Amino acid sequence: APGRVNVIGEHTDYNEGFVFPMCLELGTVVVGGRVPSGPCRLYSASKDLEFTFDLDNVKAIAEDEKGEWTSYIRGAVAKFMEGYEEETKTKLPPTSFVGVIVGNIPCGGGVSSSASLEVAVMTFVEELFNYRFEEDKKARLCQAAEREFADVPCGIMDQLISVKGKHGSALFVDCRSLETVAVPLGSGDMKVLVTNSMVKHDLHGSEYPARVRQCKESLEAIKKHFGVEKAFLRDVSKEEVEEAFKAGHMSDLAYKRALHVVTENQRTQEAMRACKNKDWTSLGRLMNESHDSLRDNYQVSCPELDALVDMARSMEGVLGSRMTGAGFGGCIVSLVRESSVDRVKEELTRGY
C-alpha cells in the first residue's frame, strides 16, 4: 500500500470537500501466511517490535491501546472482521497467522504512513481469507479503524488514495460521493518534488482535532445566520462566509478557518482543471495560494515548512510550492520543471 503526497486540497476531506493527492513510490508491505495454531503474530521491521492477538479479542485490545501505534494494525484487522461479518452474515473461521510488516514511509512526515499501514494490513487479511471488499468500502473501513482505534478524526483522503491511486497520476476526489478522476501528473517535463522538513507532526495532539471542531463551530455560525441547513463547509460559498462574519455571527478565528476551507475547495477544483490542460503556471499559483491560506488562515504551518517553501519559490524552475498533509511539520510539495529538479534538490538541501 503506497503513501501519498497531496498536491492541493488540505483540511477539506473531513469537510466533505475536494482533494487532489497522488501516490508516492514509498509504501508498506505485509508478508506472511496462516499457521496451524497459536495466536496471531505480527512483527514490524521498522519498530523491531512483535505483538500478538487472537481474532476473538483483537477489537478489545485495540480499544484498550487506543492511540498507540499498534492500534492502527489491530484496528484494521478488527474492521476487516466487522466488514466481513456485515457482508457475509457469518463469523470468520478461527484462524492463526504470522506476518512481517516492512515500510519505508517516514513516520510523522505528513505523507500518510498510517493510512498506508492500515491499507496494507487490510490487504494482507483480505488475501488470507480470500475475501476482498469493493475499493470504496475498503477505504471507509480503514478510515474507521483510524478514527475509532487511533483516535484521529481523519477524513477519507489518505485511505482512498492508498487503495485507488494510480502510478503517474494525481487523483481528484470528491470526498462526499467518493467519485474520482485520475489526471496524469509527474511525467514529462513537470515533476512533483517532495521535501521532508524532518519536523515530525503528531495528529494525536490537540491541534488537528481542534481544527475539526473549529470547522463545525464555523458551520453552526453560518447556519444560524442564514437560517438554513448545511451539512458541511463544502456546502458554503465564500460570499456566505463573508456575510456571516460581517454580520457579527462569526469570531475572527471561525472566519479564518471557514475562509480557508471554502477557498481551498475552489482552488482544488481549479487545480484539477489546470492539470488536465497542462496549465502548469496556474497549478503552481494555486499551490502557492494554498500554502499562504494554510499558514495565515488555518494556521497549521510552522517556521521550518515556511522556510522550505520560501526557498523553493525563489528558485528557477519552481512553479509553486506548499506544505502538504495536516501540517505542524512534515513535508512540502513543489511543482518543478524536470530540467531543474537536481539543482533544486541540491539547493534546498544545502539551504535548509
Rank of each mutant, 00 (worst) to 15 (best):
G186W: 05
L219D: 00
A231K: 15
L203Y: 08
E229S: 15
I156Q: 08
L185Y: 06
I156F: 13
V212E: 01
T180Q: 07
C215Q: 08
C175K: 11
R234S: 13
S237Y: 12
K191A: 09
F172A: 01
D158G: 07
A170V: 10
S218M: 08
L178F: 08
H201F: 13
D158T: 09
F149N: 05
L128A: 03
S162E: 04
S206V: 13
L141K: 07
Q214D: 12
L128T: 05
Y131V: 04
F232Y: 15
V228E: 09
H201D: 01
M190H: 09
E217I: 12
S169K: 12
D136A: 14
L171M: 15
E135W: 12
L219K: 03
E126C: 10
L233D: 00
P209I: 04
C175W: 14
S197E: 04
V212R: 11
K216V: 12
E135I: 14
K191H: 11
E146D: 10
V199S: 00
R211S: 03
A120N: 04
V119H: 02
E207C: 07
I222R: 10
E118Y: 02
S116E: 01
G165Q: 05
E126V: 10
L233H: 10
V194D: 01
R211Q: 02
D189Q: 09
M122A: 07
C142R: 09
V121F: 06
V125W: 10
C175Q: 11
C154V: 13
G227S: 10
L160A: 07
V163D: 00
G168F: 13
V192R: 08
A120P: 03
P209F: 08
D235G: 09
F124C: 02
A231D: 12
I161D: 00
G155K: 05
D136M: 08
K230G: 00
M198Y: 14
M198E: 06
G205D: 14
K191I: 11
G168P: 10
V125E: 04
E207L: 07
M198G: 02
M190S: 04
Y131E: 00
E217S: 12
E134M: 10
V192I: 15
V173S: 00
E127S: 14
V194Y: 04
K137W: 08
S197R: 04
A231Y: 14
F129Q: 00
K137A: 06
L185E: 01
P184I: 06
L141C: 03
S169Y: 13
F226G: 02
G188Y: 11
F149Y: 15
V199A: 02
E220K: 13
E127C: 03
D174G: 01
S187E: 14
A115I: 04
F232S: 11
K200G: 02
E118S: 06
D235T: 08
T123L: 05
F226E: 00
P209H: 07
C175H: 09
N130T: 12
L185T: 06
C142I: 08
T123W: 03
P209T: 06
M198L: 13
D158S: 06
E134L: 08
F232H: 14
L178M: 05
A182H: 15
S237N: 10
G186L: 08
D158F: 04
F172R: 03
K166F: 06
K224N: 09
Q214K: 15
L128G: 00
R213P: 00
V183S: 02
